[in-house]
Design a protein around this nucleic acid. Structure first.
Lengths: 363, 363
DNA sequence: TGTTGGCACTCTTGCCTTTCGAGTGCTAAT
DNA sequence: ATTAGCACTCGAAAGGCAAGAGTGCCAACA
C-alpha cells in the first residue's frame, strides 16, 4: 500500500513539530501549522492510519503522536527539506577549518570539538587507516646520550621521540643508523619489520649497544599506533540539554558508552564515498546503548587511503536536516584540505547525499 | 571555645556516614556506629552544639545533620584518618604509569584519564609552564618542495611540522637555514623573536622566498603554545553517578564549566611543593560554578620548571581521604618519572601532606 | 466518498490532603 | 552529666480530585 501525498505532508509536519517541541503532537497543531486546508478531524483520520502503517505511535490513548524509527526513516529519506545553512554558518565552518591544520591527531580532536559546537550534540571523530608505511627516517644527534628519532609516515604525519641513553654514542654511529634505517625501514608495513631485518641492521651498523632495537621498537609502535583508528569525542555534556536525557541514568549510560570510545559505525558497513552522509536511527544501530539514539555520520578523505569519520550522536528526535548539512559541509572542507588535492574547488558547496538504511529490515 | 574530644569523634562519624550514604545522619545511627558508649540523647545534645558552632546543619528541623563546608574543613584538616590504599591499588597506579611515557601532551590526557578512573570522579590535568625556550632546531630536507621542522624545547618535548612549499628549495639552503636557526633561535623566549632577528637571519641565509618567516612563525607558535597551560579533562560523565547531580541542570552547568577548560586552581594560589595535596571545599572555590563542589588538587614536578597539576572534582560530600591518597600517589609517581631524577627512590610511599584552606576566613 | 463538527471517553498532569515515620527538643529522673 | 520518655515537627510517599488535552467515533454534509 502506497502512502498518499497528504499523508507525507502530515508525517513531515509531525516530525518537524516533534523535533522542535519534544512533545507528542496533536491533530490540532498540525491543522494549524501545515498549510493543507483541512480540519483537525480529517487529520485525525489520517493520523490513525499513519499509526496503523507504523510511521507513528502514541504514548497512550489520549496523547498526541510521536514518530517511530520507521517514521523518522521515511522523513530522512524522502520528506525532509534540505536545510539551507546561513552564510554565517558556512563562513564559520570554513574559518575554523582554516585555523588549525597541524598533524592529523591534533586535527581529529579539533574536528570533533568543532562538530560538537556546531551541532550542539556530542560529536566524535575518528580515522580509519589503510596500511601505513614509513616514508622517511631521520635520527638527530643531540648529545652523546640523547637523540631524536623523526619518522615521516606515508600519510604525511610526522612522529618523533626523544631518547635518552644510559651510555654514550658517537655521531658517526648515529649517522650510520640513520641512513641504514632510511633505506631499510621505509616503505614497509609493520609486519614486515622482522627480527631478521632488525638483526641484519644491527650488524651492518656495528651496533653493540642495542640502539637498533630501540629505534626499531619506535618504528613498530608508530606504525601500530597508526593502524588502530584514533578517535576523539567531545561535547558529551551537551546530551544533558536534551529533554530525553533528563533521566540521569539514561544519560550516564550513553555517556559512559561514548567516552569509552564506543564504536559508532556498525562493523562491516563502510562509508562508500566521501561527501556522503549516513543516518542511523534508533534500533538501526548495532550497539545496545545506541538503540534509542540516532547517529549521523559523514566521512572525509584524509589523503593516502586514510578515511576520516565525523559522527554526531543525539536522541532519535534530532534535527537531522541541519546536522546532516553541517556535517556534510565539514567533511567536504576536510577532504579538500587534507585529501590528495583532487577535491572540489575553493568555494565549498557540495551536494548533500544522504544514504539510507543499509539493511532494509525494520524489525 | 575549643572543641571537645567527643565532639570531634561525633563530627567525624557524621562526615564519614554522610560521605557514604549521602543522606542526613541521625543521632541513632551515630550512637550505633561510633564506639563511644553513650546514648542517642547525649549525641543529640552534642549535635545541637555542633550545629551552633557551625560545623553541621540540618536541612529542616526534623531531619538528621549534614556537614557544612566548615565541618568538612575540620574533617579534612584534623579528623579524617589516612586511608590505606590496598596493595593492588598501589600496584595498579604504578603499572599504569609505567606503561606510557610519551611526550608530555600525550601523558597529560592519560594522566587525567587515569586519575578519573582511579577516583571515579571527573579529573583534570594541566601543566603550568615557566618560560620555555628552544634547545635545538633542525630542518630535515625531504624533497625540493617539502621539509620538516623539528624543534626540541627546554622542557625536553619535541615538536615537528611538515611544510609543503609552492616553490623549490635546494638542500644547501636548508642546511644554511638549519644552522642559522640552531644558533640564533635557541635559548630565547618567544618575545625575543623580534622582526629584527628574523630579518637578519633572512639576509644571512640569502633567503628570498620567505622561508625564514615560515620557520620563525613555527618557532613562535610552538613557544606560545607551550606557554598556555595545556589542560585535559576526562570522566565528566562520572558526575552523573553522584546523587547530588541527579538534577540534570546542575550537572549540565558544572560539566559545561569543566569541559570549557574552566580553571580549577584559584588564581594567585600556587602549589608550594610537590607531593602536597590541596583541598578546596565548596565555597572556598573561586569559580561560581564550583561553589558547591569540592576540588582536590595534587601537583607534580614535570622537569625543567614545569609543574603539572592533577585535580579531581566532586560534590562536597566526596571521599576526601581516599581521593587525596590516590592523587598524592599518582603525583609522586609522575614526579619521579618526569622530574629531574632527584625524586624519591623506587618504591613510592610518600607522606601525604594535606594543605589547609588558604584564607582562613570561613564566612 | 471524503470531509467536518460535535461529543463522549481516556488518560496524564498538577494539586491538594492525608498519613506515616524518622528525627528532634525538652523535661524529668538517675 | 547522662539518659529515658514523650510530644512535636516536617518531609516524603500515597491517595484522590479536577482540569485539560487529545482521541475515536458518529452523524451530517458536499
Amino acid at each position: 500500500m502506497s502512502i498518499s501525498e497528504r499523508k507525507k505532508k502530515i508525517l513531515a509536519a509531525v516530525v518537524d513539530e516533534y523535533i522542535q517541541t519534544a512533545e507528542p503532537v496533536g491533530s490540532k497543531a498540525i491543522a494549524a501549522k501545515a498549510g493543507l486546508g483541512c480540519s483537525s478531524a480529517t487529520i485525525r483520520n489520517e493520523l490513525a492510519e499513519l499509526v496503523n502503517m507504523g510511521y507513528l505511535e502514541q504514548p497512550h490513548t489520549s496523547a498526541g503522536r510521536v514518530p517511530t524509527p520507521m517514521g523518522y526513516r521515511m522523513y530522512v529519506n524522502e520528506l525532509m527539506e534540505k536545510q539551507k545553512l546561513s552564510l554565517e554558518e558556512t563562513e564559520e565552518i570554513n574559518r575554523r577549518l582554516n585555523r588549525r591544520l597541524q598533524e592529523l591527531d591534533d586535527t581529529i580532536s579539533d574536528v570533533s570539538r568543532l562538530a560538537s559546537q556546531l551541532t550542539n550534540y556530542p560529536a566524535l571523530a575518528l580515522t580509519t587507516q589503510a596500511a601505513v608505511t614509513i616514508k622517511r627516517f631521520d635520527i638527530i644527534y643531540v648529545d652523546a646520550n640523547t637523540f631524536i628519532i623523526v619518522v615521516m609516515l606515508s600519510n604525511n604525519s610526522v612522529k618523533n621521540k626523544l631518547v635518552h641513553l644510559p651510555v654514550s654514542v658517537d655521531q658517526p654511529m648515529m649517522q650510520r643508523l640513520s641512513s641504514l634505517f632510511n633505506s631499510g625501514f621505509t616503505g614497509i608495513t609493520e609486519d614486515q619489520i622482522t627480527p631478521l631485518l632488525i638483526n641484519s641492521t644491527e650488524r651492518a651498523a656495528d651496533d653493540t649497544m642495542g640502539l637498533t632495537s630501540v629505534i626499531a621498537a619506535f618504528a613498530i609502535s608508530v606504525l601500530s599506533e597508526s593502524k588502530v583508528p584514533a578517535s576523539f569525542i567531545s561535547g558529551e555534556n551537551r546530551l544533558l540539554s536534551q529533554p530525553e536525557f533528563r533521566d540521569p541514568d539514561k544519560a550516564h549510560k550513553l555517556m559512559g558508552y561514548l567516552s569509552g570510545g564506543g564504536y559508532i559505525l556498525p562493523p562491516g558497513v563502510s562509508m562508500s564515498g566521501p561527501n556522503e552522509v549516513k543516518v542511523l536511527i534508533g534500533p538501526e544501530n548495532v550497539a545496545e546503548e545506541l538503540k534509542d539514539s540516532s547517529v549521523i555520520i559523514a566521512s572525509y578523505d584524509a589523503g593516502d587511503n586514510t578515511r576520516g569519520i565525523i559522527g554526531v550522536v543525539g536522541p532519535t528526535r534530532m534535527d537531522y536536516s541541519a546536522v546532516a548539512e553541517k556535517l556534510s559541509l565539514l567533511a567536504a572542507g576536510l577532504s579538500q584540505r587534507l585529501g590528495g588535492g583532487e577535491g572540489p574547488p575553493e568555494g565549498i558547496h557540495n551536494k548533500l547525499i544522504i544514504k539510507g538504511d543499509i539493511s532494509n529490515e525494520q524489525r
